[in-house]
Measured scan of single mutants.
Amino acid sequence: NRRVIAMPSVRKYAREKGVDIRLVQGTGKNGRVLKEDIDAWLAG
């Protein structure tokens, strides 16, 4: 149960899109989840 590193704005964006942020692979520094990662996850 790893802790997800993401800015609050990215967490909010994921919530609005209905994405469980824990399932998204972060590509930022130290595995940080970026807004682009959410978009990529939604695109498949």
Rank of each mutant, 00 (worst) to 15 (best):
R2H: 15
R3E: 15
G31M: 08
R3Q: 13
T27E: 03
V19W: 01
A43W: 12
G18S: 10
R15T: 10
Y13G: 01
R15S: 10
G31A: 08
N30S: 12
K35C: 06
N30D: 13
N30V: 07
R3A: 10
I21G: 01
K17N: 12
R22A: 09
A40Q: 13
K12P: 01
G44Y: 15
P8T: 08
K35V: 08
R32I: 06
N1K: 13
G44E: 14
I38M: 02
D37P: 00
R22I: 08
I21R: 01
A40H: 12
V4H: 05
D37C: 01
D20E: 08
R32T: 07
S9Q: 12
E16N: 11
E16L: 14
V33K: 03
E36P: 12
V10T: 07
G26L: 02
K35R: 13
E36W: 13
L42A: 08
R2F: 05
N1F: 03
I38F: 00
D37T: 01
K12G: 04
Q25H: 13
V19S: 01
E36F: 12
S9C: 09
K29N: 10
G28L: 03
Q25M: 14
N1C: 09
G31I: 02
N1Y: 03
I21W: 07
I21A: 03
R22Y: 13
D39E: 09
R15K: 13
V10Q: 02
K17H: 13
G31T: 04
P8K: 15
S9A: 15
S9Y: 12
A40I: 11
I5Y: 05
A14K: 00
K17C: 06
S9W: 13
R11V: 06
E16F: 14
V4P: 12
V24P: 04
I5P: 05
A6Q: 03
G44S: 14
P8I: 10
K35W: 06
V4I: 11
D37Q: 01
D20M: 07
V33N: 00
T27Y: 04
D39Q: 07
I21S: 02
D20Q: 07
D20A: 06
V10K: 01
G18P: 00
R32Y: 08
R11C: 08
R22D: 07
L23C: 07
L34G: 07
K17R: 12
A14V: 01
R11W: 14
L42D: 05
T27W: 04
D39P: 01
R2V: 14
G18Y: 09
I5Q: 06
G28R: 02
V33M: 03
G28W: 02
V33P: 02
D20G: 03
K17Y: 08
G28Y: 02
D37W: 00
K17P: 00
A14S: 08
V19I: 10
E36A: 15
L34H: 09
L23P: 02
E36G: 15
L34N: 09
T27A: 04
K29L: 12
L42N: 05
N1P: 15
V10P: 01
G44D: 15
I21K: 00
R15Y: 10
K29G: 08
D37V: 00
G31E: 06
N1R: 13
G18K: 11
M7E: 12
I5F: 05
N30L: 13
L23T: 10
A43H: 12
K12W: 09
I21V: 07
R32E: 11
P8G: 09
N1G: 14
R2G: 15
T27P: 02
R22S: 10
E36I: 14
W41N: 04
D39H: 05
Y13F: 05
D37A: 01
Y13M: 04
K17T: 09
K29I: 11
E36M: 15
V19G: 00
V33C: 05
G44P: 09
G26H: 04
I21D: 01
I5W: 04
R32M: 12
A40P: 01
R22F: 11
A43L: 13
V33W: 01
A6P: 03
R15C: 09
R11I: 07
R22V: 08
R32F: 07
R3F: 05
I38S: 00
A14M: 01
T27R: 08
W41S: 04
A6G: 03
K12H: 07
E36V: 14
T27G: 06
I5M: 04
R32W: 09
V10F: 01
A43T: 13
G44N: 14
T27C: 05
V4W: 03
I5K: 07
N30K: 14
L23G: 09
K35E: 07
E16A: 14
E36T: 15
V33H: 01
T27Q: 06
L34D: 06
V24R: 01
E16V: 12
D39K: 07
N1Q: 12
K29T: 11
D20T: 05
I21H: 03
G44K: 14
G26V: 03
R11F: 10
V19R: 00
Y13V: 03
W41D: 03
K12C: 10
R2A: 07
V24A: 04
R3V: 15
R3N: 14
K12T: 06
R22N: 11
L34R: 10
R22P: 02
K12R: 14
I38Y: 00
Q25I: 14
P8R: 15
G28N: 02
I5E: 07
A40F: 12
D39V: 08
G18D: 09
S9E: 11
R15Q: 09
E16P: 00
R11H: 08
K12D: 05
V4Y: 04
V4D: 04
D37F: 00
I38G: 00
L42R: 08
M7L: 14
A14D: 00
W41E: 04
T27S: 13
K17V: 12
N30W: 13
I38D: 00
V24M: 07
N1T: 12
G26Q: 03
L34W: 05
L42Q: 07
D20F: 06
D20V: 05
N30C: 10
L23R: 13
D20I: 06
V24G: 01
G28A: 06
Y13A: 03
R15N: 09
G28V: 03
V19L: 06
R3Y: 03
G31R: 08
A43M: 14
L42Y: 07
G28F: 02
